[in-house]
């Protein structure tokens, strides 16, 4: 984002220097009007986008009722929902489970993804194309179905239910090599002549990887780690299958899902909001801090496919 923020552009996204400069009141006035319209739209978008988030924060501080109400601003403010959340429920356990999964997945997945993408991008060997095609085809199957077997095996190994976080880390990481596309796109952009120069100087391939390419790859390493960290926080599908309604092993998504079900809504609505805010704070903080790298990844990945 920082890459583009300072460049003034017109509505078609081209740099301003490139447009022909015409002077005259008519153009200036019409530009001002169009800018006002654009501002109005952007403000409207901001309101729509932030309304739910403001709502959830207000609801989390609401003390007078635990259910949904028809007004936005609480009549009575307080931390009661948060205190209840940590003292009367298993939320802390779920939160720590998820945080553990986030950190572990972030590190392990990065090793898997970077090895795979580095090899596919910068090395040529027999079977490379075949390997890529196989992974493309495997990716077309709904990954969820692999859980039928994995659950069976894991439950014999005691990696489900109470120990689900451990099992889920394995599930998230083991096949993560298949998501190599974005980082391969990144490695593709590093000139090959760098490798060749180092090889001529007598570096082994490992040294090229470790001493030449890795120092240049900070953005993609951070992007991959960020993705790995975010995934367990949002995962409901796989997690709920492996956890199998066991309180000990729940992640936040599965644990909190019940609180907004229509049967429990009236007693746990504000509790859900407090939990939602608590969960969002670390994730949003990490995300906004590393936003720059996320944008680079998204843009690069989209262009290269």
């Amino acid at each position: 984002m920082s890459k583009v923020k300072n460049i003034e552009t017109d509505n078609l996204g081209r740099p301003v220097e490139a447009t022909t400069k015409k002077t005259g009141m008519g153009i200036k006035a019409s530009r001002r009007i169009s800018n006002i319209i654009v501002y109005a739209i952007l403000v409207l978008i901001t309101v729509i986008w932030l309304f739910p988030f403001v709502g959830i924060v207000f609801d989390s501080f609401r003390m007078e009722s635990t259910s949904q109400v028809s007004y936005l601003i609480p009549k009575q403010w307080g931390f009661g929902n948060y205190i209840n959340l940590f003292t009367k429920t298993d939320f802390l356990k779920w939160f720590l489970n998820t945080a553990l999964m986030g950190v572990a997945t972030s590190v392990i997945q990065t090793v898997f993804v970077l090895s795979m993408s580095y090899v596919l991008s910068r090395m040529r060997f027999k079977g490379r194309k075949g390997l890529m095609n196989i992974m493309l085809i495997l990716g077309m199957f709904p990954g969820f179905l692999t859980l039928i077997l994995i659950y069976k095996v894991f439950s014999d190994l005691h990696l489900t239910e109470g120990m689900a976080p451990l099992g889920l880390i394995i599930v998230y990481c083991a096949s993560s090599g298949m998501g190599y596309y974005v980082s391969k796109g990144f490695f593709d952009t590093i000139p090959k002549s760098l490798d060749e120069a180092a090889r001529v100087d007598g570096a082994t391939r490992f040294q090229v990887f470790y001493k030449v390419i890795m120092p240049l790859s900070k953005p993609i390493v951070i992007y991959t780690m960020l993705m790995g960290f975010m995934a367990p926080w949002g995962d409901f599908m796989m997690a709920s299958y492996i956890i199998h309604e066991n309180n000990e092993g729940m992640n936040v998504a599965v644990g909190m899902y019940e609180w907004l079900s229509r049967t429990m809504l009236n007693t746990t609505y504000t509790r859900f909001c407090a939990a939602g805010v608590t969960v969002s704070i670390p994730v949003v903080a990490v995300f906004l801090a590393l936003q720059k790298y996320y944008v680079q990844g998204v843009t690069g990945g989209a262009v290269k496919g």
Binding site: S34, W49, L50, V252, V283, V284, F287
Partner: peptide, 25 residues
């Protein structure tokens, strides 16, 4: 991106909130 629009970074960050906040919340 339109020319003359200020605080571009702010508008983008507002939108990006839906990516940052876990979807189930």
């Amino acid at each position: 991106n339109k020319k003359g629009i200020k605080i571009k970074k702010f508008w983008r960050t507002v939108l990006v909130m839906t990516i940052a906040i876990p979807q189930f919340v």
